[in-house]
Simulated scan of single mutants.
Amino acid sequence: MKAVTISDVAKHAGTSKSTVSQFLNERFDYMREDTKKRIEVAIEELGYSPNIVARSLKMKSTKTIGVIVANILHVFSTQVIRSIEDFCNESNFHVIVCNADDDPVKEKRYIDMLRAKQVDGIIAFPTGGNVDLYKRLVSEKYPIVFMDRMIPELPINTVLLDNEKASKLAVDAFLQKGHDQIGMISPSLGKCITPRMERINGYKNALLDHQIPFKQEYLVSAEIPHIQSVLETMLGSPNRPQALLALNDRVLFEILKYTKEHQIRIPEDLAVIGIDDVSFANFYSPALTTVAQPAFEMGKKAAELLLTRISNKESEVEAEIFRFEPQLIKRSSC
């Protein structure tokens, strides 16, 4: 069958091609309601579908952005993606989501793929392994926004939590409950990932502020599959901590799994706080004290920044870091 064209729609609706084009681009300012209705009916009766590729070439925009997350398993990542998608949908932009698994090779592959698809811009949780590639994109004035992580040498707008404050809120909460032997569990520190390094600094500084000596054996890190092993060592020690701060949601899952399997009572035997407000925190038994990130606000800000940059590609914009406030949500695990 011959493809239905915009000319066919115009003829069927009894109007001009330019009027149909205005309708398709949602420019209704001077369009009568009966004209809109005729075009709608014509499109439905003819089964017309716009040629998205042709429109993209003409408009020099695909109305699409890419989001490259470090690990889509994190609650924070999924909430940020939802917020970005909601904001972009309201602005008639589509979103392609890519999961890099904290792998610079996958990250580069996704950047290349998104550029090949001519997406208008990218929001990335950068791995830190593709600095030269991002430098090239910056030099081309390609719209980019970083989320959750920063690369200091790159002048790119970045949206971050106040990570040091997040740890301080948790340490202060432990101390208010009388726990001064405070440990912290982190994912692997092999890569200098911004939230991990900042949260650890916040933990150390909070102890210092309260004149509590930092104990190296109370700060441990490992890849997620090995967290159970480091918990065995730490909590099996005669001088084990009274309280544990989980650096993120995936670490918190491992701590909860360990305490359940080893019948360690929370908070009687071990007080626990997690950074990231997991969905089950309120109905877990005991309810979990957490430090929440305003993920939806952060995602919206990243989308706003990117779409503003897309609409002003040629303007010189000084890159900024946008910090968001964490919130301690007090429940029963501390």
Rank of each mutant, 00 (worst) to 15 (best):
270 L>I: 10
256 L>S: 03
287 A>L: 06
252 L>E: 07
262 H>G: 06
296 F>H: 13
254 E>Q: 15
252 L>S: 12
308 T>A: 14
270 L>W: 07
304 E>S: 13
281 A>N: 01
275 I>W: 03
292 A>V: 03
306 L>F: 10
274 G>L: 06
260 K>Q: 14
298 M>R: 03
288 L>Q: 10
254 E>K: 15
304 E>D: 14
287 A>E: 12
252 L>D: 05
274 G>R: 01
280 F>H: 12
305 L>T: 05
250 R>G: 00
302 A>D: 01
302 A>E: 00
273 I>A: 06
284 Y>H: 14
252 L>T: 07
291 V>Q: 04
253 F>S: 13
258 Y>I: 00
301 K>G: 06
291 V>N: 03
257 K>C: 10
262 H>R: 14
302 A>G: 12
265 R>F: 10
258 Y>L: 00
280 F>S: 14
308 T>C: 12
281 A>E: 04
265 R>H: 14
267 P>W: 04
264 I>D: 07
277 D>V: 06
259 T>G: 05
259 T>P: 01
294 P>V: 11
258 Y>E: 01
283 F>G: 09
262 H>Y: 12
306 L>M: 11
284 Y>D: 07
276 D>F: 09
249 D>M: 08
250 R>S: 10
283 F>R: 09
275 I>D: 06
304 E>P: 03
276 D>H: 10
293 Q>Y: 02
303 A>K: 01
278 V>Q: 01
267 P>V: 08
307 L>K: 08
270 L>E: 09
273 I>N: 02
304 E>C: 10
291 V>Y: 05
310 I>S: 07
278 V>Y: 02
274 G>P: 02
305 L>E: 10
260 K>T: 14
255 I>Y: 05
253 F>W: 13
307 L>W: 05
273 I>V: 14
255 I>F: 08
277 D>F: 09
267 P>Y: 03
252 L>Q: 05
295 A>I: 08
273 I>T: 03
290 T>G: 04
295 A>H: 03
304 E>H: 10
302 A>T: 01
307 L>D: 05
273 I>Q: 04
249 D>T: 04
281 A>P: 00
288 L>E: 07
303 A>L: 11
268 E>G: 09
289 T>Q: 06
311 S>M: 12
263 Q>G: 11
308 T>P: 00
282 N>I: 12
252 L>C: 14
251 V>L: 02
265 R>P: 06
274 G>W: 05
276 D>K: 03
286 P>A: 11
311 S>R: 14
258 Y>F: 15
281 A>W: 04
293 Q>L: 13
303 A>I: 09
257 K>V: 02
300 K>G: 02
302 A>F: 09
261 E>Y: 11
272 V>R: 01
297 E>M: 13
296 F>T: 15
276 D>P: 00
262 H>I: 05
276 D>E: 13
264 I>W: 11
255 I>L: 07
272 V>C: 00
288 L>M: 13
278 V>I: 15
274 G>E: 06
251 V>W: 00
251 V>Q: 02
284 Y>R: 02
296 F>C: 14
297 E>Y: 08
282 N>K: 15
287 A>R: 07
289 T>K: 04
309 R>Y: 08
294 P>Y: 07
263 Q>C: 12
265 R>G: 10
266 I>P: 02
311 S>W: 00
280 F>I: 14
274 G>T: 04
294 P>K: 08
261 E>Q: 15
262 H>P: 04
262 H>F: 12
299 G>Q: 02
307 L>S: 09
289 T>H: 07
268 E>S: 13
302 A>W: 04
306 L>P: 09
291 V>A: 01
265 R>V: 14
